[in-house]
Each structure stands twice: as structure tokens, then as C-alpha cells.
Nucleic acid binder design. Structure first.
Lengths: 201, 201
DNA sequence: GTCTATAAACAGATAGAC
DNA sequence: GTCTATCTGTTTATAGAC
């Protein structure tokens, strides 16, 4: 088998990821995935037994796309401002390369928390490290006081939301696809500036 | 009929809105709505003929929940900083009272733009007024230069995203419902501060 | 206007040939 | 391992009694 050919299982995963992330679990038909993969519906069940099991594989895979990288940045031993810049750059880059995953993850968690218990458990973000770092800087008088919850919410909001609202933004702002990409690229600089500016003394 | 009793049509609309906004079009069964309304499934078709038509009524209704109020704030003849404060307060208040509508609207627009063509047309946000106001302030040397697209994206992101990510935030930050409400209340002050701070000279 | 019963279409899953 | 054909349960929608 040549190097950039996919075996059937990989082909299914690729197709399933595309369809699930775009249409959501409830909006996806096994037939859609089979069509996308160019194979028969029965093969999906041969490899993954059920729609639920296939979805679980995809959801886990999607989480792995961004989660470890972001945790690594947040828990790294670096300057706070530098951490903010790294986080925004990393997060926005990942989402630019996977524009559907933001809406997908938050929608599925809101609508079907029960199906995702297995996947979400074991994530357990270690907010303690961030809180400690933040409180330390505040105590040292190097930044303005801010609650960790808001700090995280602000940073993540401005990185993620434009992708969730992509069609709406493109419509309202009269952007085409290249314009949206340009817009996103600009935010890699802008978002950390605003976040840093909001805590700088 | 007493004043705070609903007739059947209103009862259906109320139930449909609750179920649709929570589970999305694809995740909603007509039976779910009938159960929520405490009536029979056939009545839904008697009043609204099809799931699509019922959904359309709900979607239009949801848009009307927030859209006119926000447009009013944005196009009002007020000080820019005051406009920002009003917008954040209004938007966050509406979402706090309707926690599901943010995720609902953006998900449905992403997944089913075709079904919503009728609703989205005729919205046509007038970004010109905002752009003009912003550019005027910049030209007068009263605020830092910023593109309108980013200004809007920043403001809306920080207002809306916490609601879309609500279950995730509550999980990660170990918040219960009162804590989340408190968190949201704080953002009515915090968000405008950050946005204003980002453009203040 | 509201219900029960049922039609018609669909979607997930399996059986079995190759 | 991959396909066609089919089973089974679900879901939208309608027919018809009251």
C-alpha cells in the first residue's frame, strides 16, 4: 500500500469526522458517511458496529486535536504574557485548520452530555496551575486583579467564537473565504494584545 | 379564557421553542414537543402542518427575541463608550434569560443554512452605522484605530461565548448554577471595561 | 379542535452471497 | 473484506372517529 493511501478504517474515520463535525451526531446519517467515504453502509457497521461507537471514536479524535496542545501551553513554565500569546496563536491556528470542530464540540456537549461521559471524564483541565500563576502575578503587583474564570473565558471567547459564528460573520461583514482567513490571521496578534492590555497595570 | 392561560397554539409554540432550542432541529422529535406541551402529536400537524413549518415559526421568534433590541442600541445616537456598555448589558441580560438561544441560532445557521434562507434574509445588519461611528471617533483622535470587524467580533464574542460553552465552563471551573449566574452578572461590567480599554488611547 | 390508529418513508443494523 | 438485500424500529405525516 502506497504511503498516502488510506486503508478502509482510516478512510471511514476521515469521512465520519468530516460529516459528524459538520452536521452533528443527530444530523448525520450513516449513509452520508458511506457516501463521503465512497463505500457501502454495511462496511461502517463491520468496522465500528454502531453509529454511537463510530461517533465516540471521532469525538475522542477531535478532542485530541487541540486539547493536549493547549494544556501544554497553559502548564508550561513561561512568562504569563508569553503564555497568552502562545495560547492564542496555537488555538487560532488549530481552529483555522479545523473550522468545524469548535461548534461541533460545544454543541455535542450541550445536547448529548450523556453520550460523552466517557470522553469528557479524564479530561479534567488543571485550572489550578493557571490560577496559581495568575494569583502569583497579581500578588507581586505585576498585573491587575482578575478572576481566573473571567481571564480564561475572555481569552477563549475571542479565539473560538469567530469560528462558531463564521457563517453569520461572513454574511454580516460581507466577507468571502479569503477575507475570513485574513480576518482570522489578524486575530492571532489582536487577541493577545487585548487580553494583555486588560490585565496590564 | 383567563389571562395567563395559553391557547393551544401558544402552548405548542412555547413547548416547541423549549425543545428546539435545547436539542436543535435534528435532535428534536415531534413527540418530544407533544409531550412537553401535554397534547397529542397530531395536533402539532393540525396547527403547523409540518416539522419544518413549526421550526420556522420558532426560529423567527427566537431571532426577534434579541435582534431588534441589539440593533436599536447599535444605531442609537449615543456616546460610543456608553453604547458599548448598553450593548453588553442588554445582550448578556437577554442571553441570561434565554440561555439556549445562542448555541441554537449559531448551530442551526451552520448546519442548515438552506432551511433558514427566509429568516436570515431581511435581517441585514446595518454595519455601516457602526463603522461610521467608529471611524469618526478614530479620525477625531479619540480612540485607537481598530477595524470594525474585530471590534464587533470582540464585543460579541465575550458576551455570547460563555453561554455557548456553559456546560464546559461549569465543568472545568467547578461552578454550579448560582455560581454561573453570578459569573455572568459580573461580565456585564467586565466586558465593556475590556472592550473600552482596548480602544482607549 | 382533539384524539386514536395507521400509512409511508426513513435510518440503523444484520444476514448472507461473493 | 466488501457487497446487496432485508429486517426492525423509528419518525413524520395523514385519515377518520368523536
Amino acid at each position: 500500500m502506497s504511503e498516502n493511501e488510506l486503508n478502509t478504517e482510516q478512510l471511514i474515520l476521515k469521512a465520519a469526522r468530516k460529516v459528524f463535525t459538520h452536521k452533528g451526531f443527530d444530523g448525520t446519517r450513516m449513509q452520508d458517511i458511506a457516501d463521503e467515504a465512497g463505500i457501502n453502509k454495511a462496511l461502517l457497521h463491520y468496522y465500528f458496529r454502531s453509529k454511537d461507537k463510530l461517533f465516540e471514536a471521532i469525538f475522542t479524535d477531535v478532542i485530541r486535536t487541540f486539547f493536549p496542545q493547549l494544556v501544554q501551553v497553559l502548564t508550561a513554565d513561561a512568562d504569563l504574557f508569553e503564555k497568552i500569546r502562545l495560547f492564542a496563536d496555537k488555538y487560532i491556528s488549530i481552529l483555522a485548520a479545523n473550522p468545524d470542530i469548535a461548534g461541533f464540540v460545544f454543541h455535542e456537549i450541550s445536547v448529548n452530555p450523556h453520550r460523552l461521559v466517557g470522553n469528557i471524564r479524564g479530561i479534567g483541565v488543571n485550572t489550578d496551575i493557571i490560577k496559581k500563576h495568575l494569583d502569583h502575578e497579581i500578588a507581586a503587583g505585576r498585573i491587575k486583579p482578575i478572576k481566573m474564570e473571567h481571564f480564561i473565558a475572555n481569552l477563549v471567547s475571542m479565539c473560538v467564537f469567530p469560528f462558531i459564528a463564521k457563517p453569520v460573520l461572513m454574511g454580516i461583514m460581507q466577507m468571502d473565504n479569503p477575507a475570513f482567513e485574513q480576518f482570522i490571521e489578524e486575530r492571532k496578534q489582536l487577541v493577545p494584545e487585548i487580553i494583555i492590555n486588560s490585565i496590564r497595570l
